[in-house]
Nucleic acid binder design. Structure first.
Lengths: 335, 335
DNA sequence: TCTTGGCACTCGGATCGGGCGAGTGCCAGT
DNA sequence: ACTGGCACTCGCCCGATCCGAGTGCCAAGA
């Protein structure tokens, strides 16, 4: 069905269209690429490609434009990921070096990714297959208190709560017992143990213990992974002309954490591309997502990626996403 | 110079233009407002207003459009803040109720503000005239450690650091001494005391103590106030037609924390409006910022506000910003 | 002195039609 | 199987025209 030349034609169409943003015709194609055939021949191939649904005409007597299916074929079989230049690599390492904590790493990463791809970047907070390292209980003002949960990956989560009139010594005791109980446990184990805990404390302290346990359970349940940071929205400016159809839905989608998580999808070690309709979110039917898992070990812990127009430069974008994912993983692994 | 009728004409022009988004002419003006004079008279007044720089003509034979100066006069002397409807008030309280911690409050506030004003909202993290409540030192994996600073307002800040091979007992001792030293101190006092601290510890622990102090000083110096959360960017969609001139610069400005802080400006108890050029940021020459201080006490602790087109509905926006600022302050005060 | 109706004038925006050119599909020839 | 040639299609550009909202100015009236 699709011989080598037809594939070459498709590849040429995709790369020209990505660059020029305009339907590409047979003549221009043979001129810009070494196809060694005449425009007429290319036209025949184009007709075949159109028949198969890989390209389409905006209107009669216009050039051809790749369809989602065409991009898919391009990405799967025709594109080779461009290696990054030395300068780009240097920029990436420089940008990520010197991050002071997890928040900082994530913030820098999202900026970096937006910058190198000139697109909108999304970075999911790394999931931590971590164990409880410490529980802390602090009284703030009056009855107001704070419960802290620190895990071995260095993530700190917190909740306010009402500590009532409990004495400081009692609180310290409670804290110590919780630490003894939970230290070193995985999130699931910790949740189990917490269920029975209140019953074991002095009835007088029962209410406070109940409150603390409830908040802790909530903290454990609230996966911090559910946070996705977005950056580079200004890069959408390039698509101002199709604002309503292309930019607006993306802007709206970007405000919803839930949508972002769906967009990033399952974290996979390899770079994955979802083109147009393949995104299970209607408003992104004209956008593509290039994502990759990243993390400090072999199994990916979270996802990062960019969202851009279906007609994006896939080879470069995929290369950038892959590179950033790798460097961040490295930084995370180093601690 | 400007008699009552001219002011009335200006007010009418501003409100019509805000609504219709189109230059407003003399005929339309007398029809839509009870000015009780003829179009010709209004034209004379318009000429005077234009002379003074309050309005301008996009081109000969077009209607008039308010200038920044015109909006300024409108806001200062002609606008009365619209009271919110009962439903709006209810929505605000409902939206803010049930926030679990500071992050949550800020997140909800920014969403709320974006929603009620249909514009881009910015909320600065509340500054805390707080005192140190607790310092914590946790070992994570190997040498990696975490230093936590908790203040009386319940804000938790953290830094990673290298704890070397120090024994857990030594770390606990260090922590206890730091707590004794710093508890109850303001940020400035704490910074002072920390300077001398490392000299007082066992030489063997000196390196670790130095590291901890450095991070703590950095935490104290890094004003958490420097964080501004943005939301409702999708609301810019309404201005898609002037994308390049109006939306793009705003999108870019919104990505820069520094710019956001400048935009929000000094926190003042009252609602303040900066119109067009009054913003000391060139790219926002065509936008206005409506901001208000908020916080749990009389002196405002931080700012929140919205940014929108100079031709925005100032009375409603100011009302919404004021209301949200008040309710958030209330929530914060309640703890 | 202020207001008003009248009038000539301006100019942006919408509408229309023709010409241009890129691009196609098809066919006959090599 | 490829190629050159040819007729045809259609979107886009361009200029001409028309329309109407809106203005400035002036002379008359309160």
């Amino acid at each position: 069905m699709l011989d080598d030349r037809k594939l070459a034609v498709l590849r040429a169409i995709v790369s020209d269209y990505i660059q020029s943003r305009e339907p590409v015709g047979s003549r221009a194609l043979v001129e810009r690429h070494q196809l060694n055939v005449s425009p007429a021949t290319v036209r025949n191939d184009m007709a075949a490609l159109e028949e198969e649904g890989y390209i389409t005409q905006p209107h009669t007597s216009a050039g051809r434009v790749p369809t989602d299916k065409g991009y898919r074929l391009f990405v799967d079989r025709l594109a080779q990921i461009k290696p990054l230049s030395r300068a780009e690599r240097a920029a990436i390492t420089a940008f990520l070096a010197g991050a002071v904590d997890l928040d900082d790493i994530v913030t820098r990463t999202v900026r970096l990714l937006a910058q190198v791809t000139s697109q909108v970047a999304m970075v999911q907070y790394p999931m931590r297959p971590a164990v409880v390292r410490q529980v802390n209980l602090v009284r703030l003002n009056g009855a107001r208190g704070l419960v802290l949960l620190i895990d071995s990956a260095g993530a700190v989560s917190q909740r306010h709560l009402d500590l009532g009139l409990a004495a400081d010594d009692d609180l310290a005791g409670l804290r110590d017992r919780l630490n003894q109980l939970l230290q070193g446990l995985s999130q699931r184990q910790a949740a189990e143990r917490l269920g029975d805990f209140p019953a074991t404390v002095d009835p007088e302290l029962r209410p406070v213990a109940n409150g603390v346990c409830a908040q802790l359970l909530d903290l454990i349940a609230t996966d911090p992974q559910a946070r996705v940071v977005v950056g580079g929205v200004g890069n959408l400016a390039r698509f101002a002309d199709q604002f309503d159809s292309a930019v607006k839905p993306v802007l709206e989608a970007l405000e919803e954490q839930v949508v972002l998580l769906r967009l990033l999808g399952q974290a996979t070690a390899e770079v994955t591309v979802r083109i147009g309709q393949e995104n299970d979110h209607a408003s992104l039917a004209r956008a593509s997502v290039v994502a990759s898992g990243y993390g400090a070990s072999d199994d990916a812990w979270a996802s990062l990626g960019v969202v851009g127009p279906t007609r994006m430069d896939y080879p470069s974008t995929m290369a950038s996403v892959r590179a950033v994912a790798r460097y961040v993983s490295q930084i995370l692994a180093e601690g």
